[in-house]
Design a protein around this nucleic acid. Structure first.
Lengths: 127, 127
DNA sequence: CAGAATCCAAACCGATACTG
DNA sequence: CAGTATCGGTTTGGATTCTG
């Protein structure tokens, strides 16, 4: 792990600035569904349970601005818009899949830890 | 990428639940500095520029609850508290480092994309 | 279809003061 | 040292309405 002086994680450290941009609720999921191929606005929507139109628009705009997604307007009536992952966005798939695998592999351990923690806390509070 | 029916990312998908827990502003950074060895509260603080005491406490509690960090109270006067990464937390280092490397490798590309996007937006707005 | 605009409530966040 | 408690200010999030 490379360091950013004088703090390990300086506010100007690229990892902080960039992590903020992709660690929101929906970016990772949108990039993941787009990895299988381009989708239209409502096609994305149908794959992500619970996303609102506003959140989706905002997330897509940020992804587009950061060069991770390309927005293509297809002139027709009514107009069609297609979202496509860029090569840069595709390079995030490796890290994302590693993270995704971790969540599946260790979810049971995390839940066990939570149960233990919550039980201990409750005990302390009920003294 | 494994799917969660009927949506690709169902609300009960482990990846969503767990990703929410670690994708906040500080978790990744705290786990990273703890990877080098256990630290006390204020030692962590000194490595993470801009973190407030409140945010640090909250993040550490969540990490502890999820079994990623262990909190050890050393009886002394004044009391000392040590935070140590757990084996489970350490298993996240691989994915984190992959993500970290991506930010360093592609930050320039992202900034170029932003400049292009912002210039285009400005042009549209100034018509 | 693919959004933009608006409004409101809830969550978060930092600053401050206090404690054993 | 290692926190807890509290209090505004800000941001976020959802629901709703409107548009070409």
């Amino acid at each position: 792990m490379i360091e950013c002086s004088p703090y390990k994680f300086h506010v100007d450290c690229p990892s902080r600035k960039l992590f903020e941009q992709i660690s929101d609720k929906w970016s990772m999921m949108i990039l993941t569904v787009l990895d299988d191929g381009p989708l239209r606005f409502n096609e994305i929507r149908r794959q992500l349970e619970g996303i609102t139109q506003k959140a989706q628009t905002q997330t897509l705009r940020r992804l587009e601005r950061n060069g991770l997604v390309e927005r293509k307007v297809i002139a027709s009536s009514p107009v069609a818009v297609q979202y496509e992952i860029t090569p840069l966005g595709r390079k995030l798939q490796g890290p994302f899949k590693a993270l995704y695998k971790w969540t599946l592999d260790y979810m049971p351990e995390v839940e066990k830890a939570r149960a233990t923690y919550d039980a201990r806390i409750e005990q302390v509070e009920n003294v």
